[in-house]
Write a protein that binds this DNA or RNA. Structure first.
Lengths: 191, 191
DNA sequence: GGAGCAAACTAACAAGTGTTAGTTGGATTA
DNA sequence: TAATCCAACTAACACTTGTTAGTTTGCTCC
C-alpha cells in the first residue's frame, strides 16, 4: 500500500488497458500481461487481486469521471448548445487522458461482474442527463425538433469512438479537436 | 453440402453471431454455442470446420457487402451529398439485415487470422472511397471546408454504432431512420 | 549485521479450452 | 430389405486458463 507498490500496481493496470484495447479483455491472459511487464504471471498477484479487479478499476474510474463531469455541466446555467459543447469537450478530455481505458469501457463493460450493475446505473444516468439537455434545447428552440434519442445516439456514437481516432491524430490538440467536432456535430457539414 | 446441411450450418453461424455480440468472440466457447443450439460441442463439427471459420464467415460476408455497396455508390453520377445519403442508407440496410454480425465486424475483427489482411484491405478501401466523396463535396462547395477526416470519423462512428441501436428501435423502419440520420449528420441539429 | 519487507521466482492446481476419433440411431435411398 | 448417410452422441486428447503456496533475492533501516 506504500508509494512504490501503488506505482507498480498502476503500471500493471496501464499495461493491461493497453493489451485489452488490442485484443479485448477475454483474449488477454495473465501470462500475456506478465510478459508485457517483463515478469512471471504469478508475480502479478503481489500487486493485484485478480484479472477481474483490473477490469473493474479501469472501467469504473472512467465511468465515475464521466458522471462527475456531467454533474458539473448539468448544474451550470448555460444554454443547451453550450452544454452540448461542454459534453464534447468532456469526452475529448477524458479520452485523451486514457485512450486505452476507454476501449475497455466501450468494449468490455459486459465482463464486469460485481460492478456490472453499478456501471449500468452510471451509464443510464449519464444518458438520461444527456437526453434532458437535448430536450431542453428543443423546447428552447435552440435545436431542431428532431428525435432526441437519435440526436443523442449520433453524438454519443461519435464521442464514444474517439478512443479509436485520437491516437492517430496526435497533431490535433484536444481543444482544437473539441471545437472542430462541436461544429460538425451541431452545425452539420453542408454549406 | 446438401440443402439441409447448409441450413443447419447457417443456424450455427447465426446463433454464434448472437453470442458473439453479447460477450465477444473470445469469451464464447464452443460449449456455449453448442448449448445454445441444444446439442453437444463435438456435434458442431459435423457442420463447421472451426470456431475461427465461423468468425471469418460472419465478418467477411458483411465486409464484402459494404464493398459492393460502395462500388455502386461511387459509380453513380449523383452529387456528393446524395452519395453520402446513400452511404447512410447502405449502413442502415446492412445493419438491419444482420445486427449481430455487425457487432462481430466492429469488435472482433482483430481475431481474424488468415483473413485479417483481406479484411483490412476492404476496410481501408472503403474508408478511402468515403473520404474521396467528402473531398469532392468540399471542392464542389456542397460541404463546408471542414477537415475531411473528422467528417468521415464522425459519420462513420455513428453508422458503425447502428448495430447497438437498431434492435432497441424496432418502431423505426429503416427508410425513416436513414432519412432522420442523414438529416442530423448532414444538416446538424441546431436551428 | 540482522530484521523486515517488497517483489520477484518455481511449481503446481483444478477447471476449462478447441478439437478429434469412433460410435449410434433413425431417416432416405437403391 | 439392405445400404447409405446425416447428425447427433460419448470419450478423450493436449494445451491453456486464472490462481495459490511457498521460496528466494536484494534493498532499507535500526
Amino acid at each position: 500500500m506504500n508509494q512504490k507498490s501503488e506505482t507498480r500496481k498502476e503500471e500493471i493496470i496501464t499495461t493491461a488497458a493497453k493489451l485489452f484495447k488490442e485484443k479485448g479483455y477475454s483474449a488477454v491472459t495473465m501470462r500475456d500481461l506478465a510478459t508485457a511487464m517483463g515478469i512471471k504471471a504469478a508475480s502479478l498477484y503481489n500487486h493485484i487481486n485478480s484479472k477481474q479487479d483490473i477490469l473493474n478499476t479501469i472501467i469504473i474510474s472512467i465511468a465515475e469521471a464521466f458522471t462527475a463531469g456531467m454533474e458539473t455541466i448539468i448544474q451550470s446555467e448555460d444554454s443547451s448548445i453550450e452544454k452540448l459543447k461542454q459534453i464534447v469537450a468532456l469526452h475529448v478530455k477524458i479520452t485523451s487522458n486514457n485512450t486505452n481505458g476507454m476501449a475497455s469501457l466501450n468494449n468490455d463493460w459486459m465482463h464486469l461482474e460485481e460492478q456490472l450493475d453499478y456501471y449500468l446505473q452510471l451509464r443510464n444516468d449519464y444518458e438520461d442527463n444527456f437526453q434532458v439537455i437535448i430536450q431542453q434545447g428543443i423546447v428552447a428552440n435552440e435545436l431542431k425538433p428532431n428525435n432526441p434519442e437519435i440526436i443523442m445516439f449520433s453524438m454519443l456514437s461519435t464521442l464514444r469512438s474517439l478512443y479509436l481516432w485520437l491516437p492517430k491524430k496526435e497533431d490535433f490538440n484536444p481543444a482544437d479537436l473539441a471545437m472542430n467536432l462541436s461544429e460538425i456535430l451541431i452545425d452539420g457539414i453542408n454549406t
